[in-house]
């Protein structure tokens, strides 16, 4: 007879051996397929999932599309660059600026005006945009079109003309040759030498203007002539040409009309030329930037 302790020990020793044997005998159960079968199945899956011909076509199509897209982007950006590049020239208040355009045409910008034209002018066409007042001398050639923000435009082939566009004001004067003037919503008007078209609402009013019989507008020589215009316009022109602030102190300058002229030679002289015929009195600030005008002497 063995003691319980001995018994446990004996069993335990036998059990240990058996456990070690069991661990040693552990094996992963074999697969239902052979290794070669497994390999072939993998090859089969690769062959069926890849579908090579389809892929090649997709790949070449994709490459083609990518190339085409890249080329299109290059073409579009080159085109945009050529087409949309603009040169912008502006003339500040108090200064007139001469611009020589790539085709030899000239543009003289009055004070407080700007001009934009295509950088690749001869390629894109002679299409210009202005705001303010510009006197053009156009070299004969292809159509030369000047427009403003309101799509009012002047079209010429070779001529000299002045175009003023400031807000609702739109005035075109032809000094040589002829120009076609158009205003959205109205008929196109052809101007000959010495004719002036002016926007009146939606229509264009054409008149002969003796002031423009000269071969260039007065302002290009520093002379500003007015015939029956509201005094306010004259004061605005003074402000623009001398870069000053002009204020009517005790009357409405819209209510009075002015015929006459001033020159750009000196502020004092210009003010005198405007004030004297209208019986006005003026005061110039010490730094010559602010002018006050009074109607009572």
């Amino acid at each position: 007879m063995t003691t319980p302790k001995e018994h446990t020990k004996q069993v335990s020793e036998t059990g240990h051996e058996e456990l070690m044997d069991a661990i040693k005998a552990l094996q992963v159960p074999p697969s239902t397929r052979s290794k070669e079968d497994a390999w072939n199945m993998i090859m089969q899956s690769i062959a069926t999932t890849v579908q090579p011909k389809e892929t090649t076509r997709i790949n070449s199509l994709r490459v083609w599309l990518t190339t085409a897209a890249a080329a299109a982007i290059v073409v579009v950006s080159c085109f945009s660059y050529l087409w949309f590049s603009r040169v912008s020239v502006s003339s500040p208040r108090g200064v007139a600026t001469d611009v020589i355009l790539p085709d030899g045409s000239t543009a003289k910008l009055n004070a407080d005006s700007w001009l934009k034209y295509p950088k690749f002018y001869s390629l894109v066409g002679r299409k210009l945009k202005i705001e303010g007042e510009v006197f053009f001398t156009v070299t004969p050639g292809r159509s030369f079109v000047v427009s403003d923000d309101f799509k009012r435009q002047v079209e010429v082939v070779g001529t000299k003309f002045n175009m003023a566009t400031r807000g609702s004001t739109f005035k075109v004067a032809c000094f040589s040759g002829s120009v076609m003037v158009s205003n959205p919503g109205s008929e196109r008007v052809q101007l000959g030498k010495g004719e002036v078209a002016e926007a009146a609402g939606k229509t264009l009013k054409v008149s002969k203007d003796e002031l423009h019989i000269a071969d260039s507008p007065g302002w290009t020589n520093g002379e500003f002539k007015f015939v029956g215009v509201p005094l306010s316009e004259v004061l605005t022109e003074l402000e623009r040409q001398f870069n000053i602030k002009v204020t009517a102190m005790d009357f409405n300058p819209n209510g009075r009309t002015f015929t006459g002229y001033f020159t750009k030679s000196s502020l004092e002289q210009a003010l005198e030329l405007v004030a004297q015929p209208m019986s006005l009195r003026y005061e110039v600030s010490s730094d010559s930037t602010v002018v006050k005008i009074y109607s009572n002497k």
Partner: peptide
């Protein structure tokens, strides 16, 4: 043995086989 078709080189296939083995 089924051979996969498509764009791969013989080296790729034998490399793959070696890894598999």
């Amino acid at each position: 043995m089924t051979l996969p078709t498509g764009s791969y080189s013989q080296e790729e296939l034998s490399w793959f086989r070696a890894i598999f083995d």
